[in-house]
Computed example of a mutant assay.
Amino acid sequence: MTTLNELRLLPWSGPGGKPCYLSTDNPDGYMSRLADSIEAIQLGTASGLLEEASEALGNQDMSLDEMRCLVAELTGALRDIFRVATSRGHLLAISDPRESAY
């Protein structure tokens, strides 16, 4: 049986916002590649939003509604990136031989 720390946290949520996990021994399988692809898209989206936010900081003409929209998009991107970082951190911890030495 696969333990929770061996599961991969996927870059999407299930019903009710609950986390989704993948149990596989094949990092090149279809679901692993799909998760990798979605993570890459999420990282690219966050990068673009970061650039947009940096420009917005110097834009005195940006309306409050535009700023709220940008903040909402940044919040979603941050949530996605946090999930990616958490997933990758767990993957590193279970694949790091130093972890099993303690």
Rank of each mutant, 00 (worst) to 15 (best):
C20Y: 01
Y21E: 04
Y21I: 05
L22K: 01
L22Q: 08
S23L: 08
T24K: 06
T24Y: 08
D25Q: 10
N26Q: 15
P27C: 03
D28L: 14
D28P: 00
D28Y: 08
D28N: 15
G29M: 05
G29A: 11
G29I: 04
G29F: 06
Y30E: 11
Y30F: 12
S32F: 09
S32I: 02
S32W: 08
R33S: 07
R33G: 00
L34T: 11
L34N: 05
L34K: 11
A35F: 09
D36F: 05
D36Q: 15
I38M: 15
I38H: 09
E39L: 02
A40E: 12
A40K: 12
A40I: 01
A40Y: 07
I41A: 13
I41C: 03
I41M: 13
I41N: 08
Q42F: 04
Q42T: 02
Q42C: 02
Q42S: 02
L43T: 08
L43H: 01
G44P: 10
G44A: 14
G44S: 15
T45Y: 14
A46S: 12
A46M: 09
A46R: 11
A46N: 10
S47P: 00
S47Q: 15
S47L: 09
G48C: 03
G48H: 07
G48K: 13
G48W: 01
L49T: 06
L49I: 06
L50I: 02
L50E: 11
E51M: 11
E51W: 00
E52M: 14
E52T: 14
A53C: 06
A53Q: 12
A53P: 05
S54M: 11
S54P: 00
S54G: 15
E55F: 06
E55I: 07
A56P: 09
A56L: 10
A56N: 05
L57P: 00
L57V: 13
G58Q: 08
G58E: 08
N59S: 09
Q60A: 15
D61I: 01
D61A: 12
D61W: 03
M62S: 07
M62R: 13
S63C: 08
S63K: 09
L64K: 12
L64D: 13
D65C: 00
E66W: 02
E66G: 03
M67V: 04
R68C: 01
L70W: 02
L70P: 05
L70V: 01
V71D: 06
